[in-house]
């Protein structure tokens, strides 16, 4: 956390240089409803959810457990299509997963058969292979008509820069000395750091965090919260975070969106206009925490 920022009105401007260089996405969720078909009949999960994430903004979703927050993340990631409504990224509808929107799950889900380095290299490798095997003759044929050149081969310099990218991502999370280790040799916090590096190496425009620190011990969690803030500030992507931890949401996010129990509806939005780095003992954050707990029906325990 290097930059100390002035308190400003529009949340997006808290993220330095993000929107300016165009490395962050605007995500628009418009009147999205979603449900599952279960043996006992249809189960509504999301009900008429609309939400707008400005480029470079850090938004946290809070709500009772099982209310459908994680489902919303899966929709935004493009892992599932929404039953109704539209979700767009910079104006383009989201129809499938894309490396510009990377998800970090509660479990690190590292591939146990790959070393740390190879886990981080997963994204670049997958994207390269997808490019190589997606019928290049058809692509170049299409390119001939549209004048695009996306079908061209990856030059050697790109391979070298890819290696440098993986090294840099590992360095960002401070695990370069563990590059050759296997996941089972890592602690929970280290594994989650590798998962973060695996996301960052793709230069995502949106980072989707599904309770990423939920399974860590409390000290590691606090440590990684600070690291998340500094990674966000350095890289300038937009962040959509799901968490159960009100304190964590207030420490990290510029805006909190609070959901009702299932089917999830937005019941409140709270802007957190504190500058970064934030302080956990800040009385302003404590007041906001009370307010959030009130919305979640837990205000009496204050």
């Amino acid at each position: 956390m290097v930059a100390v920022l002035r308190k400003q009105d529009t949340p997006a401007e808290h993220a330095p240089a993000a929107s300016a260089t165009g490395t962050a996405s605007r995500i628009q969720v418009e009147q999205v409803s979603h449900g599952f078909n279960t043996p006992t009949g249809p189960l509504g999960v999301l009900e008429d959810v609309s939400l707008d994430i400005a480029p470079g903004e850090f938004v946290a979703l809070l709500g009772p457990s099982g209310c459908g927050k994680s489902t919303l993340l899966r929709l935004v990631a493009g892992l599932e299509p929404a039953t109704a409504g539209t979700i767009t990224q910079d104006g383009t509808p989201i129809t499938r997963p894309d490396p510009s929107r990377i998800v970090v799950f509660q479990d690190p889900t590292l591939f146990p058969w790959r070393t740390v380095w190879n886990n981080v290299a997963l994204g670049p490798e997958a994207q390269k292979e997808a490019q190589r095997y997606s019928l290049p003759w058809l692509r170049s044929l299409g390119g001939a008509f549209t004048g695009s050149t996306t079908g061209s081969r990856t030059p050697d310099s790109a391979v070298a820069s890819q290696k440098a990218r993986v090294d840099a991502a590992l360095q960002k999370v401070g695990l370069e000395s563990f590059a050759k280790s296997y996941p089972h040799q890592l602690s929970g916090g280290m594994a989650q750091r590798v998962a973060l590096a695996r996301a960052l190496v793709n230069n995502p425009r949106l980072l989707i965090l599904d309770e990423p620190l939920g399974k860590l011990d409390s000290l590691t969690r606090l440590e990684l919260q600070s690291e998340l803030v500094s990674l966000w500030q350095k890289n300038g992507f937009s962040v959509l975070l799901v968490t159960h931890d009100v304190e964590e949401a207030l420490f990290l996010a510029q805006r909190l969106i609070i959901f009702s129990p299932r089917p999830a509806k937005i019941i409140a939005e709270i802007a957190v206009d504190q500058s970064y780095p934030r302080h956990r003992g800040d009385p302003a954050l404590a007041r906001l925490r009370h307010e959030v707990l009130n919305h979640l029906g837990l205000g009496t325990s204050w």
């Binding site: 889900t109 292979e129 793709n202």
Partner: peptide, 29 residues
């Protein structure tokens, strides 16, 4: 194979080929 592996690989831009040869088969070995 843990279904989350496929989710991870898909968000990272994996093709179906990648899911079979780089995720399903190594995990099944």
């Amino acid at each position: 194979v843990n279904k989350a592996y496929y989710d991870v690989a898909r968000t990272l831009g994996a093709s179906e080929r990648f899911l079979i040869f780089r995720v399903a088969i190594p995990a099944a070995l």
